[in-house]
Design a protein around this nucleic acid. Structure first.
Length: 592
RNA sequence: CGGGGCGUGGCUCAGCUUGGUAGAGCGCUCGGUUUGGGACCGAGAGGCCGGGGGUUCGAAUCCCUCCGCCCCGACCA
């Protein structure tokens, strides 16, 4: 491929709209252009990289028995209504109507559609297990697209689904996928960590996320350097020192606290209490659907005064309680001040759960066994002290609600947790029978009994692999691609195309590399050396062969390694051989 | 959705406060010189100043409104 005819619109300056490194570099190096918020056109360089990533994914999926499908992105509403996610997905789903007025949507993921095929076609346990996947475009009406390709409204996802007769089969399928994912990210050259994760809207029993540590990420991962424990902050637990409370049996008493509104206020108020001796009472509104009926209810969350609530944890706890009642949580939000006053009889700052029995009440585990605590009295400007939780707040359900913090103890060993930003590049779920039950996907087992298929779901964000590689591997000059996902493996650069000797040598090297099957780009542009070298660094080709006048006089050309930033002079006649060897080594190193 | 910012040749931006009919650098075209890290000289092309409405003799500039984009908080590959 000749650069002069290949479309690589590089930019000298950083585009004004780009903030994160991968976004800036993808734009500057001519990989992508923006069409709208969270909507990008992939130019030839990006498309080449994406195809290479897809091919790695495809090979590894096939290697564990995966069968590639291609399902519609345009879905009728009915199937989403059947699983209940027409409402659960809420605003995140793009919806449209056809000319007859029928509801349609653009697929955000494909559990429903694959399950639909499964329920129609799979009849017997003898047909299981099945491993089905596709690499396809997904649409999500993100509330806030951002960071270039990291968070967009249209993207490519590899989504796989497994169908097994029982949970043992699911465990194996999950493990197969997990290993395949490791191979995929290894081959793409990514450094990643596998973490325990929250299942969110997907449902199911267990899930692992594949995370790349980067400040451009939007998740927080807690990890223990000592034992390897790692979990998304939405799920992470920690050890904290136990607190011994005195006078546990003393009765509680109400006392006036004029002007006290916050935990902080109460710590300095005479007769108040330190934050870890306070109970923080948060009021939420949970909206759920049961059958066709939508309803809202007040839910209380109780935490130790100095502990921050974790939104994902409370959502998952409330979701579980509602599910036990046959309802599905659709929205959980902090109550408005008017709602709080109406529900509690007092304003924020004086709230408490003592004596409140008509609302679902969730108490964080860290409060278990605590006594002699101070909390709001549900009377403005009054608090209660001497509260014994087991005695005075009887209807509380114990759950994990608090967000763990850096420096707290590892839940698995005596190590200390660290917390760092990370980007989710893959997520694997054990779905269990959630979709097979709601959608009636069953098979007959060996005993002739009809049983729901046990499912798993496994996703990879293809563009995120590209973008996170750039986040991970770049320098001031540009991208430094892992060779397996680079758009080209090497660029051949005659430093002055008008010099006939340089051109002849470069032509020859290019021809030989092409014939050898190397993915080579030939920079035949009539540009100054500086322009060409800067562009080559920016685009991030793993290797460069530079053909310049001075060295060619001695019969030599320069072989440059982008990641090591080292160059070596080689005989022009030996350059192709050296390049082939280096490329081979680099590829083999990643492919393992 | 809430909060903040921005919208002017292809790109990065100035001009707007204090209305008078649009500028710079880069890029692009042509000619010449140059050729190992984004060169230089000369000549050019290129702009419904995001859309609509209003105020005014006159609006990129002031007012209203809509749209789009970016960033910070609730979602996810």
């Amino acid at each position: 491929m000749r650069w002069s005819q290949f479309f690589i619109p590089t930019l000298r300056e950083d585009p004004a709209d780009a903030e994160v490194v991968s976004h800036k570099l993808l734009l500057r190096a001519g990989f992508i252009r923006q069409l709208g918020a969270g909507i990008y056109s992939y130019l030839p360089l990006a498309q080449r990289s994406i195809l290479k990533i897809s091919e790695i994914i495809r090979q590894e999926m096939n290697a564990i028995g995966g069968q590639e499908f291609y399902l519609p992105a345009l879905n009728p509403a009915e199937i989403w209504k059947e699983s209940g996610r027409w409402t659960v997905m809420g605003e995140n789903m793009f919806r449209l109507k056809d000319r007859k007025g029928a509801d349609l949507c653009l697929g955000m993921t494909h559990e429903e559609i694959f399950t639909d095929i499964a329920r129609h076609e799979l009849r017997s346990y003898k047909q299981l297990p099945q491993v089905w996947y596709q690499i396809q475009t997904k649409f999500r009406d993100e509330p806030r697209p951002k960071s270039g390709l990291l968070r967009v409204r249209q993207f490519t996802m590899k989504d796989a689904y497994t169908f097994d007769i029982d949970f043992a089969g699911l465990d194996k399928a999950f493990e197969d996928q997990r290993r395949a994912y490791c191979r995929i990210y290894d081959r793409c050259g990514l450094q990643y960590v596998i973490v325990e994760a929250d299942t969110g809207a997907m449902g199911g029993s267990a899930s692992n996320e594949f995370m790349v540590y980067t400040n451009a990420g939007e998740d927080m991962v807690a990890s223990c350097p000592k034992c390897g424990y790692a979990a998304n902050l939405e799920k992470a637990q920690s050890r904290i020192p136990a607190i011994v409370d005195e006078d546990a049996d003393a009765p509680f008493e109400k006392f006036p606290t004029p002007g006290v509104r916050t935990i902080e206020d109460l710590t300095t108020f005479p007769g108040g209490a330190s934050a870890e001796r306070q109970i923080k009472t948060l009021v939420y509104v949970a909206v759920s659907v049961k059958g066709k009926q939508e309803s809202g209810e007040i839910v209380l969350a109780l935490l130790r005064g100095d502990h921050p609530l974790n939104d994902a944890k409370i959502a998952s706890a409330v979701g579980a309680m509602l599910r036990a009642e046959g309802a599905e949580l659709t929205q959980l939000r902090p109550a408005h001040p008017e709602e709080i006053l109406e529900a509690m009889g007092a304003n924020p700052g004086s709230l408490g759960a003592v004596g409140v029995v008509r609302y679902k009440t969730l108490a964080d585990n860290a409060l278990q066994g605590r006594a002699n605590m101070t909390t709001g009295a549900n009377v403005d400007d009054h608090h209660l002290r001497g509260v014994n939780i087991a005695r005075d707040i009887k209807n509380a359900q114990w759950v994990d609600l608090r967000t763990v913090a850096e420096g707290e103890g590892c839940p698995r060993c005596d190590g200390v947790l660290r917390v760092a930003k990370a980007l989710e590049v893959g997520h694997i779920f054990k779905l269990g029978t959630k979709y097979s039950v709601s959608m009636g996907a069953t098979v007959l087992n060996a005993e002739g009994k009809e049983v729901p298929i046990v499912m798993g779901s496994y996703g990879i964000g293809v563009e995120r692999v590209l973008a996170s590689a750039i986040e991970l591997y770049h320098d001031d000059a540009g991208i430094i691609f892992p060779i397996t996902i680079a758009p080209f493996q090497i660029v051949v650069t005659p430093l002055n195309i008008k010099d006939a000797e340089l051109k002849a040598t470069a032509d020859r090297i290019y021809d030989e590399l092409s014939k050898a099957g190397v993915e080579v780009l030939y920079d035949d542009r009539d540009e100054r050396a500086g322009v060409k070298l800067n562009d080559a660094d920016l685009v991030g080709f793993p290797f460069q062969i530079r053909v310049g006048a001075k060295k060619l006089k001695e019969g030599k050309v320069e072989f440059y390694d982008r990641s090591l930033k080292t160059s070596e002079d080689v005989e022009a006649t030996a350059a192709v051989e050296l390049a082939r060897r280096r490329i081979d080594e680099a590829v083999r190193k990643l492919n393992g």
